[in-house]
Computed example of a mutant assay.
Amino acid sequence: MTKIVLWMLVGCLTVAVYASEQIPAEHDLSADQIVEKNVAARGGLDAWRKVQTMVWVGHVDSANTPARDLPFFLALKRPNKTRFEITVLNQKAVRVFDGREGWKLSPSGMGSGSLRPYTMDEQKSAHDEQVIDGLLIDHQAKGVDVTLDGTDKVDGHDAYRLGAKLPSGATRHVWVDAQTFLDVKYDRQVRGARGQPVMVEVTYSDYRNVDGLQIPFTIESGVAASGNRDKLTIDKVTLNPPLDDAMFTRPASQGRHNSVAVNADVSPPALRAMTRPTP
């Protein structure tokens, strides 16, 4: 009997090993097939199309901020409206994009804020972002062309590297895990402080189920050539809360923000994370 059990165990292990060896066969998938699996893994196209607004509440850790665990509030509304608030030393910094123009309100030590329009690069980047569901979901309707550029290792796991060409002509890369088919990495080129091109990388982890959708609750961002990373941790995600368009218009002044109409359990503060999202 012992030998029979032993051989059964060996047989099961052999099947398991054989099955694991078949995973690389997935590398023969086309870009369209990878995107299809990614959309299914994240909850399905129909489910994402039903999401018209989204709110994140959480905290940020960064080497560039004066304190840890800074609370933030991010509101997103289709087609491309965003409001981001982060509380720094009891004052709020605000970034707002209404789908056409953007503004940023920075606190000062005197309590008054400095309101400035987005720079040309910030404006262009905001126009390019797909704030609710990212580049891959419904990419054809968004005019995003997706190609398979190869495979890489991301945190020790095989991942497909997809190239995404946006309607503006800008290009991005999205890495999709070869087993889970969830987004694990994203990059985009920005202009550095001296005007030089700089590649920013964003990684996604700690995916959780939110009303049937898979959403990453940890997002880290930083310049590819640097070891420093900003970390955004989401504490709560709310889908389809009522968001008034007024909250995405130009901020009035520090200490007198536009009213924010959201569900009572998602009280501001506090937008935009290190790029996205998004997932």
Rank of each mutant, 00 (worst) to 15 (best):
A261R: 13
K104A: 08
R78Y: 01
D245V: 01
G156Y: 00
G43S: 06
R250I: 05
K185A: 12
R276C: 03
E122P: 08
D158M: 02
A67R: 02
V266H: 09
R49T: 02
H59V: 02
L243M: 08
G113M: 05
G102K: 07
V88H: 00
Q179C: 00
I219V: 14
A93R: 10
A261S: 09
R194Y: 09
G102H: 14
G255L: 15
K236W: 03
A41C: 12
V35I: 14
L9E: 11
L70F: 00
D149I: 04
L115A: 04
S259Q: 12
V260P: 02
N209H: 11
S205H: 13
M120L: 05
V146L: 08
D121I: 06
I219E: 13
A41I: 00
G58T: 05
T53P: 06
L271F: 01
S30A: 11
L148H: 00
P269S: 14
F72Y: 13
A75H: 02
F72E: 08
Q214C: 02
D69F: 02
R95C: 01
E36V: 09
I34D: 07
S221D: 05
L76D: 06
L89K: 07
H173Q: 13
L135W: 03
Q140F: 09
L70Y: 01
A246S: 13
Y118K: 03
H257P: 11
G102D: 13
E122L: 04
D158S: 09
D98H: 10
P107A: 12
L70S: 02
F97N: 07
L135C: 02
S205K: 14
V39H: 09
D133W: 07
L115N: 14
I234G: 13
R42K: 08
Q189C: 01
T203D: 06
N263L: 10
R68V: 06
A126D: 14
T87E: 11
T203A: 04
Q52I: 03
E101H: 08
I132S: 09
L76R: 11
K236G: 03
N209S: 10
W56Q: 07
S125C: 01
A126C: 03
P251E: 07
N228C: 09
L89W: 00
T65R: 01
L162N: 08
V146C: 11
K92V: 14
N209P: 05
Q254M: 14
L89Y: 03
R83K: 06
L239A: 11
V5D: 03
W56L: 05
G222V: 10
D98Q: 01
V174L: 05
V223A: 14
E26G: 07
V39F: 02
D244Q: 02
D32V: 09
C12M: 15
P242R: 15
D158P: 07
T82Y: 03
L45S: 13
G43A: 13
V210K: 10
G192A: 14
S106E: 15
I234C: 09
T119F: 10
H257W: 05
H27M: 00
V184H: 02
T249M: 04
V94P: 10
V154H: 00
T203K: 05
V202M: 14
H139R: 12
G150A: 01
S221V: 12
N64V: 01
R256N: 15
